[in-house]
Design a protein around this nucleic acid. Sequence first.
DNA 1: GAGCACTGC
Length: 724
Amino acid sequence: MFVNELREGVCKEWTQELKTMAGFQEPPIKKAKNDRSVDLNANTSQAPTQPSPSQAANGHLKARDSSASFQNLKHKNPHKRSPQKAKNPEHLRNLLSQRHALPIFPARARLLEEFKKHQTVIVIGETGSGKTTQIPQYIHEERLDRKGGICITQPRRVAAISIAKRVAEEMDTNLGGLVGYSVRFEEAVCPATKVKYVTDGMLLREAISDPLLSKYSWILLDEAHERTINTDVLFGIVKDAQKTRRSTPGQDPLRLLIMSATMDVDHFQPGRQHPIEMFYAKKQQEDYVMATMTTVFQIHREAPPRHDILLFLTGQEEIDSVTANLRQIAKDGSLAECPRLRVLPMYAALPAHQQLDVFRPTAEGERKVIVSTNIAETSITIPGIRFVIDCGRAKVRTYHPGSGFDALKVRKISQAQAWQRTGRAGREASGNCYRAYTRAEFDAMDVNPTPEILRSNLSSVMLQLLAMGIKNVVTFDFIDKPSAEHLEAAMVQLTFLGAVVIKSDCLELTEAGRKMAQFPLEPRYAKVILSGPEHGCTDEVLSIISMLSSESIFVNPAGKKEQAAIARRKFTSVEGDHITLLKVFRAFKAAKKNKMWCHENFLNFRNLMYATEVRKQLVQVCERCGVALTSCQQKTDSVRRCLATGLFTSVAELQLDGKYLTLDTKQEAALHPTSALFGGKPAYVLFTELVLTGKAYMHLNSIVDPQWLHDIAPEYFRKKHVKR
DNA sequence: GAGCACTGC
């Protein structure tokens, strides 16, 4: 490709809109309320976090943050003081004045009044308004928590921990005393804990053993706008518990606060955001990759050096090819007058040192162009960006119940994501954002991304709901109801696994199902563990499933592919990937969990340590459920047989033409090139995951014996005409 | 012969 082609490119005309996007005299972005209409029952009200009459009339308020003290709370704990210093009266006075300066403070009395009047209250205010740290304290100060504690959920672990630390400090108590937290693998609580910050997943676990959440008199679901699958499910659970407690004599009422931020203010906070000029494509672009590349050079010709560009594209392949093209074109003579162009790719699979390259400051007379996936949308912040170019698309993983596929497809992003990308241009100074789509296309985008619960396999959710005593999952109060097909598929899977039986049109949990729900795992993996004693290999399957719960174990550094392949061969098993993982785990243990050993063997130390933690927890659940910890040592075919008890609906059969068809839904599928079985042609393979990318690939596969399949589920496999 | 990105129990 040549510069001339780009000069004549399709996207050189832009319409300019929204002169300044983030001025904050007026909220710059007019959007629909970000939270979905939350079903308000009769005794529900919406309380503003600031008693401004005009905004109160609007039903909710976008509080403005005048103090910057909380803004980075999510990312780091800003209080690295010694505990002794907390007793320092001056420090305490300082903390108190900070609390009083928060936007939420003037609304304190009004909020408490609403809390006393209504059992469910929705509080909308931006991050930094103080709702997460202050509201629990207000409730405690008013002694409204006498009959039970306050539990505040967070979608992320770090947030739960760091906010608990801050609140303990403000309340001048030790963390783990009056104020505590509880996340997986880590907690700081005691019987006297009244204010507890937890991850949403943690509270969901708690609800399995105590569906009425009887320890608490207050549940605060924070960051509800993020619509994580756990917060969504909790919403229904808590409402259910509230109803039951209300109608049960002797039960204390359960009070529910839904706390949500609106995306616009949340992501464009004063002090963190400079004005951004917006540009839309004048007409619809046929080739968005080409359009964005054209724009790079338009900017490059005009903008001063060190005004860096962040270009959002969808995936690794696209990014690598665009990076190569841009580097090639940058050598063109007509660009001699321009700053030197440094083009850098950015995506999760990139080796760590290459990822770090994007953070290196731009040199004098140079310009950086970062070509990134949506990893740069939220997860990382790159300094120096003055221009954002947005292709308007991203890859989204969606589960398809009909075929059992997880599809990884390029889709239009939502308006909320588009604004998130835009915001990346104005972190340090005023910036510009070029959208490679028209204003009309933008308007046609969804306001928010599809909630996770509508894109997921629901078998875990359904098992959890049943374990909490929710009889009819179909009538459960979902904020967004999953389709009948999704619910049906989960029901079928749970039936196959022997977790439920259908009795008089209702699902009933079996004894095995009740045990399966105890495991923090997908039901099919829990089933494998329950089958452990029968096959004498609990120990082995625990290791394998812990490894499957972890991120990738193998490291593939660029330039050392050969050595990595040699190292990997030591662990590779002809039986497949599961036994390969088992061999790695055993070797890791034998090497005494040594970091250097991992490095030498191209294994990811952190992820192996994580697997070790998961395994420890699973062992505890086994002990609690009476699952015997048997071991088969070298009899690895028992291990594979055991795996098949939970994964038997994920089997593919070799056809005469050398391709594989899944037995369940007759989909064509191929062994993934990273599989230990790749290149071989076993008659039957068991796969862990089926992902549709270029084509349908089976990930993490093992050889299975068809006879085992008939032993495990005779009727199912007779129908599938599997030869023994 | 191929890998969107997170989070969580």
